[in-house]
């Protein structure tokens, strides 16, 4: 039995091929296409067009040594030095919303420095936001000061919707109502200040409307 109608699927196939269909819609079309050879053929043709559009993007020579830096980062991350990874992630401006995240976070750090209540700016720590199947769906950047400045960014594989943020320590203490993050077009960002327990491992989790956790970042004690 084929899921859904061909008409509905074909209406959405061009956007699917462009990679601009998210969450439930994408799953629905893929389910239909999987059981319909004709629609699979149409998807293949649209994918060819989308691929050609993608390939038409202009190319440019990256700065000298770029490839060596990327391969070195792969090697160092493979080594499992997580502490080094976090530091390095900051140095290379690693993550998706690099400019967005760091501009927000750095502003907070500069402000904290100006306040004169710390000898130096607080450090920043980045942790991956892990979703179903171990997939990295985003990241969390946390400052070391108290309460911590926190930026949560998700940009991959989550259905659109509004999610609640909550903290849970490994001793079972749960703090709900940390904030809400709206995911639109597969992406969402939340910024705020949070009192994070610093003595035990703590998970910052996104939960959906039904209360099910969808992804989580593990924050290690300082």
């Amino acid at each position: 039995m084929i899921a859904g109608s061909c008409d509905t699927a074909r209406e959405r196939i061009p956007e699917l091929a462009l990679g601009r269909l998210d969450g439930a819609e994408r799953a629905e079309v893929l389910l239909h296409v999987h059981g319909c050879a004709r629609c699979q053929g149409i998807l293949d043709e649209f994918s060819g067009v989308a691929d050609l559009l993608a390939r038409s993007a202009p190319e440019a020579e990256p700065p000298p040594g770029f490839d060596r830096r990327v391969l070195a980062a792969m090697g160092s991350r493979r080594s499992g030095d997580r502490r080094g990874l976090r530091r390095r992630a900051l140095v290379i401006g690693a993550v998706a919303a690099a400019a967005a995240i760091l501009s927000v976070a750095v502003v907070r750090i500069v402000d904290a420095g100006r306040a004169g209540d710390q000898a130096s700016a607080p450090a920043l720590e980045t942790a991956p936001m892990i979703g179903g199947g171990g997939l990295t769906v985003g990241r969390v950047v946390v400052s070391s000061n108290e309460p911590a400045s926190v930026v949560v960014t998700v940009d991959y594989a989550l259905p659109d919707g509004v999610y609640r943020l909550q903290l849970q320590t490994n001793t079972g203490t749960v703090t709900r109502g940390v904030g809400t993050i709206a995911v639109t077009g597969g992406r969402g960002t939340w910024t705020g200040t949070v009192a994070i327990p610093r003595t035990v491992p703590t998970a910052l989790t996104m939960v959906d409307a039904s209360g099910m956790p969808v992804c989580s970042a593990r924050l290690e004690p300082a």
Partner: peptide, 18 residues
């Protein structure tokens, strides 16, 4: 999609966020 499309989609999302 193809590997190129997949990789460039990742790149676009990161660049647009930035």
């Amino acid at each position: 999609g193809s590997v190129v499309t997949w990789l460039l989609t990742i790149t676009r999302n990161l660049a647009i966020d930035s």
